[in-house]
Amino acid sequence: MSEANNKVVLSVKDLEVTFRKGRQRVSAVAGISFDLYEGETLGLVGESGCGKSTTGRALMQIVPSTGGQIFVDGDELTSLNKDEARNLRRKMQMIFQDPISSLNPRRRVKDIVAEPLDCWKLAKGAERDSIVSDLLNKVGIDPAVYGNRYARQFSGGQCQRISIARSLAMRPRLLICDEVVSALDVSIQAQILNLLEDLKKEYGLTMLFIAHDLAVVKNISDRVAVMYLGKLCEIGPSDTLYAKPAHPYTEFLLGAALEADPELEQSSATLGGEPPSPLNPPSGCRFRTRCPFATEKCAAEEPQLRDIGEGHQVACHFPLVGAHQ
């Protein structure tokens, strides 16, 4: 959409995260690169365990990255010392999947929302109260009535609103949303998605929206990136990518998404098998063990992300669509 301009807010280069499990190494994120432009929402989809959350957490430095670089407004995050990194991270915020456990059950709502202000000693007394009230109003929670309640007294949807209010207190540039609506019922999910869209406009946010639900991601994103087993398969404008997927995996993923319409023909092509273990990923293309189009080349050579026009990139030796005109 037109809101995005060409200013890069976040640039990720060859990001790698490897966890150690005893002797073994789990390559959760295996070298991914993408840019996030100011004002856009990039959706990150993929099946569970493909490394979406780990990517988000590595960007926030909740888990240490083991390779690659992260540029926030041009400053490289991983090479900074602890205090400098903490400072730079003020520009980024994250909201998590489980709305209830994201809030300390024994703290009051207004203290939770004021937490970043308190941590950074940005506001006190009446000023702090007015910022908090304003934020709570923005997310649709009446501060006069509910500000003094404990977090444990709220339902999932309301907890997620409070989390959103907290994340906005620092006026971040970048908001990382990790499966923020997955735990909610559809009717509540729609409320939160609309709220995020509104706040994004109001606060001029750039968003990385991580989710496994293709319909949700399509709805909120300008561009979408598809991940499989720690690698990016495909990235492109959401309408293009959903209409003309170039990577076989994206194609199957879309085919498996169930549309709430009995008359819509469902794709008969289902993807067999299950993703291999990240402890021991296949050589070459990581999708080749399930890909119906795999050849010897796919086993021998790892496909690199390459441009096929219209801002659409794909990592496949035999993409389903050729270059866009």
Partner: peptide
């Protein structure tokens, strides 16, 4: 939300 709807 639907896969077939345009984004936003």
């Amino acid at each position: 939300p639907r896969v077939s709807n345009p984004s936003h």
